[in-house]
């Protein structure tokens, strides 16, 4: 959905967000103050003031930047691999079926089960990146395949009447047709990547939000736990937002 650039529109859009979030925060604060959910849900103000303390602030930021870079690299690797596999099935149609099956199979293995294997193969340092990549790969793969499915039949007729080679058909017709679908996939992949990176850090990475979450859980540091969770959510949100913006601004310019 394309949102116009009209400022009034933008302000009213932003206002809805502020009001919605504000209500949620107020409810949270009250629930925390009154201990409606016991100690597990502290008031928002106590979480914020904890996170702003220099020591915890520095710890949170250091961990967040590590997780962000794990998620980003994993996102890039996963998207490129998912995209490349979908495209190669398009260039060599006989391979398509096998690649579909392989990808579905890889996706069916729970990341939790792969964690220990990854620790052994790629090492603790790279595991978060690998799990992030695995989490993104299938989403992007399916999105690009879906994009190829939606190539209009009249474009297929063009490909056939001009006797176009598979490679040129992919470059000039099929891939551009799949672009909106790819961006949709990347949008979903952005949050999967953060989730994948945090999960990968649980398996014993040296640092990162995942490590922080595990240690906070074990030591019952509720404020730290919530701060880390917030940062993780914010990261997913930013990724999603950047790609949504790309979708809104770029696609209409490209003629969609």
């Amino acid at each position: 959905m394309y949102v116009g650039t009209c400022p009034v529109n933008f302000i009213s859009e932003a206002l809805k967000w502020v009001v919605g979030l504000g209500m949620l925060f107020v409810l949270w604060e009250v629930a925390g103050q009154q201990s409606w959910l016991g100690k597990a849900l502290p008031p928002l103000s106590s979480i914020v003031s904890y996170a702003m303390e220099p020591r915890s602030y520095e710890l949170l930021m250091r961990s967040a930047s590590i997780t962000a870079s794990n998620a980003l690299y994993g996102f890039l690797i996963g998207s490129i691999v998912g995209w490349a596999i979908a495209c190669s099935g398009q260039i060599w149609p006989p391979m398509k079926k096998g690649l579909d099956t392989l990808s579905t199979f890889v996706n069916a293995i729970p990341l939790i089960a792969l964690g220990p294997l990854l620790i052994v193969t790629v090492g603790e340092q790279s595991t978060p990146m690998a799990t992030a990549a695995l989490a993104v790969f299938f989403t992007v793969f399916v999105a690009v395949l879906g994009g190829f499915e939606r190539v209009p039949s009249v474009h297929d007729d063009v490909i056939r009447t001009y006797g176009v080679t598979r490679w040129r058909a992919l470059c000039f017709i099929e891939f551009p047709n799949a672009l909106p679908s790819l961006i949709d996939g990347l949008k979903l992949g952005a949050s999967s990547a953060v989730l994948g990176a945090i999960l990968g850090e649980w398996f014993g990475a040296p640092a990162g939000l995942g490590v922080l979450i595990v240690s906070a859980m074990q030591n019952f540091q509720i404020n730290l736990l919530w701060s880390a969770a917030f940062l993780g959510t914010a990261m997913s949100g930013i990724g999603f937002f950047v790609l949504a913006l790309l979708q809104q601004k770029l696609l209409p310019r490209l003629g969609w």
Partner: peptide
């Protein structure tokens, strides 16, 4: 062969010029 159908089948991401140039690139 040159073909034109009821659905114009133009590439939405290409300008009129580039759509006409497309057969050269495809070939």
């Amino acid at each position: 062969l040159g073909i034109a159908m009821q659905e114009h089948g133009l590439m939405p991401w290409l300008s009129a010029w580039d759509n006409i140039a497309l057969p050269f690139r495809l070939a």
